[in-house]
Amino acid sequence: MGETEEKTKPEPAGSGSHVPGSFQQILKLTRAQFQEYLASRRFVILLGIVAMIGLIITAVVGAFHDRAFLHALVSSPLAFYGSFWGGAASFVIVLSAVFFGGDAIAGEFQNKTGYFLMGLPIRRTTIYVGKYIAALLASICVLFVFFLIILANGVYYFGGDALPWQFGPSLLLSIIYLVAVLSTTFLFSSLFKTSAYGFVLTAILFIIGFSLLQDVVQSILDYQPWMVISYASSAIGGVFGTATDPCTGAVINTINWGLNGIYGIPGGPAARAGCPATGGPREALLSGPTWTPGIAEAVVIMVGYFVITSIVGLLSFEREEFA
């Protein structure tokens, strides 16, 4: 055996360690993972993309705000925030979710960072949730930067006092949408062991796939696309819901807080074609062939996506082997 062992008095192992509860571990893992995201190259790249989007909006509005095609959008704070925040926030959210969630779980396998965590006394659920919260916080940071850019533009054109109250609910909706989109990207990421697959699949799904599906369901199948998450995202802009009455020229509130979507778009071409003698002003301003979700309906869809994809994603990760 070669070696003469010098046996000493047994020392207790463990340095008095006491493994923290899962909630504490989630917080600790979230903090570490969030710092990792903030220091990562992808965070800088994403901030660059968002800044670019903001700059393009600023430049286009600055250069063409007196032209007819943009004039309506900058005619009131509601129209401005509804168009530029409501229109672009969901895209920023999807980008963030793809950047931070697309390979969040798959990357643990491919980059072998998962082996570092899996050797620790920590539940798989804790790892999943910790990474999810960290990705959510990083995405919120990016969204906040975009919010500041839009806000700066709005304040420049309309002043600080003109911030509409609808911005509050819209921000809230955008956070809920982010929560749902991110949990969906985490689910897809948990199905793969290769970062590229998770990243590409989520990117294709959210940038093209869901929009295409929404169009197919509502335009070809002529069915309300309540099962498509991108459909719910239009509530982020819909909460600013105003349209100009084609008959009277008055700005009319078109917000639908309800659980039922409406067939049509406020102020669409069919609405402009004629002034109906009967019916409420909201209905008068709607035109097909697309659906507009009610705010409560959109929240239900987003929460539904979050709950279902979180459960399936967690179950998938619980069963995933680091083979």
């Binding site: 192992a13 463990g14 360690s17 493994v19 899962s22 980059n111 072998k112 960072t113 998962g114 082996y115 570092f116 899996m118 050797g119 620790l120 006394p121 920590i122 539940r123 680091f322």
Partner: peptide, 15 residues
């Protein structure tokens, strides 16, 4: 969690 609490583990040269 309990089983790995007192174990030190190094598998597959993690990153």
């Amino acid at each position: 969690k309990k089983a790995l609490a007192e174990a030190g583990v190094l598998i597959e040269s993690p990153e």
